[in-house]
Amino acid sequence: MEFVSPEGLRLDGRRPLEMRQLRAEIGAVSKADGSAVFEMGNTKVIAAVYGPREVENRAQQMNDQALVRCEYTMANFSTGDRVRKPKGDRRSTEISMVIRQTMEACIMTHLMPRSQIDIFVQVLQADGGTRSACINAATLALADAGIPMRDLVTSCSAGYLNTTPLLDLNYVEDSAGGPDVTVGYLPKLDKVTLLQMDSKLPLDTFESVMQLAIEGCKAVANYLREVLLENTKQLEYRRGS
């Protein structure tokens, strides 16, 4: 199938190095300590963060650092056909773990010993790149909750179809079965905290695809920073100072 036309347009009209439209909103769940909705095109994810709070299960409590837990779910209505998604299937367990590890790497857990941080992410609408969207939403929610972090961890995916590196694959491109590189990245520290890939790629091509994904992460980070800044301004304004 032709994913990039000879005119250089992808199926949805983007060029190979363009991302989908981003949108983020902070404070979607008022009960949570921090929350955010994050959209990448038609992929829409909500994240809620509770904590730091007392550890529920004493056996899991750690005396030198905080316990980070993460739960990833997909809403029944998130895809076109309405199928009941069993909780705790392999895929969501894996993604939960991926998100937890990525977030744990940037949260300063040693500042909050004997406590627990819960991150809940739910996919409201899925159109490819849910993993990246969840990480971005979780970052925002953590920031909203005021949990100390080393940096804003952001994520973006990139693929390689029709011998062209493509940024931010949507569902159609994702299901082509080609290579799909998801990168989690700390922009300030210039460090990669997550790197996953489906399928395979020659090493030299892989490097360019990964570099593209990193560029995507940087763009996401800029946007998140703007959103957070705007949010802070709003808070400041509401306090009336």
Partner: peptide, 23 residues
């Protein structure tokens, strides 16, 4: 956004929504 209904192989009718960027 472009949306249309499509019949799957299994015979189910689903609604497909795709993004469509104008440049």
């Amino acid at each position: 956004s472009k949306s249309f209904v499509k019949k799957t192989k299994g015979g189910k009718v689903v609604k497909v929504v795709r993004e469509h960027y104008l440049r």
